[in-house]
Amino acid sequence: MAKAYDYLFKLLLIGDSGVGKTCVLFRFAEDQYNATFISTIGIDFKIRTIELDGKKIKLQIWDTAGQERFRTITTAYYRGAMGILLVYDITSEKSFDSIRNWIRNIEEHASADVERMLIGNKCDMNDRRQVSKERGEKLAIEYGMKCMETSAKLNENIENAFFTLARDIKAKTEKRLNQNRPGSNSQNGTGSNTKLKPKDNGGSKSSFFKMCTIL
């Protein structure tokens, strides 16, 4: 039987309520857009398997409730996320301002080496724009992440965003994988595994590489 996938990546969508996280996810996972999606209560995920350089990558994408008071519940599911899409709404200054809080939130609850990407959604509503593209880029540079403006409605850059993030995670994973090969100069000196098995690095936060699986 063919294997289901080569890699399994857990991704998170976070950002203020109403910025369009669920719409972005539906567009990507099911190629659908509906302006009247229901608000997300709690947390849920969707799956899409993509192919990158001949590798099958199963993306498990988590969608979270945006309102602050639910964070204690939703952050429980941050663990093991390998990529995070920080979403704001280009027509909402406030949602952009919140990105810094969300980044702090990630730093507390997600693994340290998680790949991050800034998403300015609703770029089809240029006439109501409150956050310029430049400001988004500036913030992204400040935190060392990529950024992209998207429109779930018009299906603009949605695929691109997820594929880019997946590609970066894959590169990171494979780099680490190669380092861990026997004979190579492994950084942590445990290079006896070709499988990325969880290893205790003594830290309280789990490294994201522990979560990678090679079948």
Partner: peptide, 19 residues
């Protein structure tokens, strides 16, 4: 085994259970 392993590893245990 492999399947379980992958799911298991996705469930993000800090250590392997046996240890």
């Amino acid at each position: 085994e492999q399947f379980k392993q992958s799911l298991y590893e996705l469930s993000l245990f800090n250590e392997q259970r046996e240890n």
